[in-house]
Design a protein around this nucleic acid. Structure first.
Lengths: 230, 230
DNA sequence: CAAAATCGGTAACCAAAGTTACAAAAGTGA
DNA sequence: TCACTTTTGTAACTTTGGTTACCGATTTTG
């Protein structure tokens, strides 16, 4: 039953560093349940009792929230190997904070929070690794959110762009690099409108601070860019 | 050595649910080191090797970051019983992401990440609780950031206010309540300027949607408020 | 109790950025 | 190669919200 999905699970951050055999043994110990969903099925409904986090074995699903006027908004889409509910799993809240809807026929595996922490008698070394990975996943999620919050706390588009580019530069180390985002995605990430982003990028280019073509960027005056970054 | 601080630590989220005796035994097993700092001492410097998270035993410290032009900005202040570095602890990054500066004479205790997860032979039941608490702390941190991100993703002040108030209403259940924030703090949290917040609040009042006096708020037209919330 | 500090509301002004609409360029596919 | 789609830049116009400055009310403190 689990054999079929071993390779998908092995690629999941949560099981990073485990041998497939150890992973299999652990699954036999955790006994997570696997469920199948059809397109548009509600995998979880906001407010449902939370028993454990989910991992997409196949297919894809939309994590959605209802805003105050009742429209359903897609927050993100999870695909094969992606996890959902990992923040709620250990937060002490016992309810699903969002609604998850299958976008196509999908298989999902659910790991109970209790069992992840649980009193596995054998306390297999994989189990310890599982908990470490879990902590790592949640910590990285928090860092990611914190990073995004940094950007959104800056009020000017110029400041957001500068910080984004400088962060990239610091990560990559070269003044010339490719962004993995196109204009629309970048505007979305920085939470600004696409034309406004475009306008500002061109201003930076006209001032001789940047050069760019599509997704490739060259920082021409890094000191000036640092000044722009708030 | 640890005895003196047991009551402070017992009140810390990380040790929630532990008897002082168990806590003491665990400390003897974890052997965290306690350090003293004077006012303006650098407790940790961004980039320093990360060995473990810190808990303020006494005094207070500023978590600061340097922005691109080199100004040091206070992100938050930690006081007795507060933790810092909890996100970095298990993220896989081995460096301090921020600089921590003592604001007054302070004692700090450092718990090594490895030892928290470590192979405590006895695997005291408190140790398991410690890991659970750790997961809970980090998860809640992530949820908190996620919530704040929700607010900052809304572009209009009006939308941010409406969401904030509706969230409060949903939590409390009555249309009339006190906010724990004053205008300055609320403006800060919503990342808008204080006069602009004031202006918008008054507009909402003039339109008959709200009423307020200082920190107390009455929602007079909840349907209209929901409409405002984006 | 009086001076000083803090807090919140208000208004005028202005810069930043959203909106809309369109054009140009690049990529795609039959 | 030519139509079609997607991506990106641009411009005009409008709205939002930041800035600054000031005032009155309340609270704190010497």
């Amino acid at each position: 039953m689990y054999k079929k999905w071993l390779s998908v699970l092995a690629a999941c951050q949560l099981f990073h560093g485990m041998e497939q055999q150890d992973l299999y043994n652990m699954l036999m110990c955790l006994k997570p349940k696997i469920e199948k969903f059809e397109k548009n099925d509600f995998i979880k409904f906001a407010g449902d009792e939370f028993e454990g986090l989910g991992i997409m074995l196949s297919g894809s699903a939309a994590i959605t929230k209802e805003n105050s006027i009742g429209d359903r908004v897609i927050i993100t889409v999870v695909k094969q190997g992606d996890m959902f509910g990992e923040m709620a799993a250990f937060s002490g809240h016992r309810k699903w904070p969002a609604t998850v809807i299958a976008q196509e026929p999908s298989y999902v595996i659910f790991l109970s929070s209790e069992k992840i922490l649980g009193e596995c008698e054998k306390l297999c070394k994989s189990h310890r690794l599982l908990i470490m990975n879990m902590l790592k996943v949640v910590s990285n999620k928090a860092l990611l959110l914190s990073k995004k919050l940094d950007y959104l706390s800056i009020k000017s588009i110029r400041g957001r762009i500068s910080n984004l580019l400088l962060d990239h530069y610091n990560k990559i180390g070269t003044l010339s690099f490719m962004m993995s985002l196109n204009r629309n995605e970048m505007a979305d990430y920085l939470n600004v409108s696409r034309p406004a982003l475009s306008r500002e990028l061109c201003k930076l280019r006209d001032e001789g601070i940047l050069d760019f073509y599509k997704s490739s960027v060259v920082i021409k005056d890094i000191e000036a860019l640092k000044l722009m970054a708030e």
